[in-house]
Amino acid sequence: MYPEPSGPWARAVETDASQGAFLSVWGPSEGDVWAVGGQVASIGDAGQGMIQRRTDGSWATAEVPADTPLLNWVHGAGDELWTVGNAGAALRYDGSAWQAVDTGVDVPLWGVFVFASDDVWAVGGDAFDRDTMGIVLHYDGSTWSPAALPTLDRDSAAMFKVFGVEPDDVHVVGAAGVLLHYDGSSWTQEPSGTANDMISLWGNDADDIVAVGGRAIGTIARWDGAAWTVEEVGALPGLNGVWMDPEGRVSIVGNNGLAAVIREGFDADPEDSTVSFEVLHAVFGLDDGTRISVGGTLNSSPPYRGLIIENAP
């Protein structure tokens, strides 16, 4: 039985402008967790990447290759660990160091999801240029190549996150409420009914995926295996991060330091995150019930400051 989310959140790490903010957190085990992010000189700038690693409960800065831009997301499966970032950056961890892998694109990559060493998805796009379209890339073990996407019913400058339960059941969320689904052979667009940017998603089963986003209005979407149901929840600020525990309870984080738990449907019970002004951008849970959320002053002009908060059961 996975522990009930409870207890206070506490600040574990605070970074200054020399390192920047955190954007993503993930780890293969409670003794090995990675948080990525970085700093930019201005919005749209490629910036400088940062990685911190939590081992034995304590965080330390990890080495990143020179010229690594700001890193937006991290994910892995088994020993296969990837992080992606601005300027088309993708880095693979070889067990001792991060190695840059050419993706063939130069737009920001916002999300990555790893099934296996020869089955990795990444998504991205220039979110600041409405005249461009978001992209989906696939890594087959040797090269990254763009996936063929359907003609969308709207402009969507970026795909923000990708998540899959099985290799033939993959979801992507993106700008302007775009929701895509991959069935193992092709991508299709699913109706959303919202133009709100959808930022991230997580799930346990093929028929229970939760996506969040909204920017100015908290927006929650649930996939039941066949269709998405989307609710705009005005009382919540924009949501950025989501993680579902093995019991199906959903932790969400967002702007204005929001952290909350959805136990059923779309009803969120806010928690005291100890964070007021900063943005919480991602959340992830460990096997021992500890939840970790990361973020920073992403609602202000750069340079950013960052933070990691933890919630022990």
């Binding site: 009382a235 919540l236 204005n256 909350a260 779309f266 969120a268 806010p270």
Partner: peptide, 8 residues
């Protein structure tokens, strides 16, 4: 849904 501030 609870309002965040009221929850506080």
């Amino acid at each position: 849904l609870l309002n965040t501030r009221r929850y506080a």
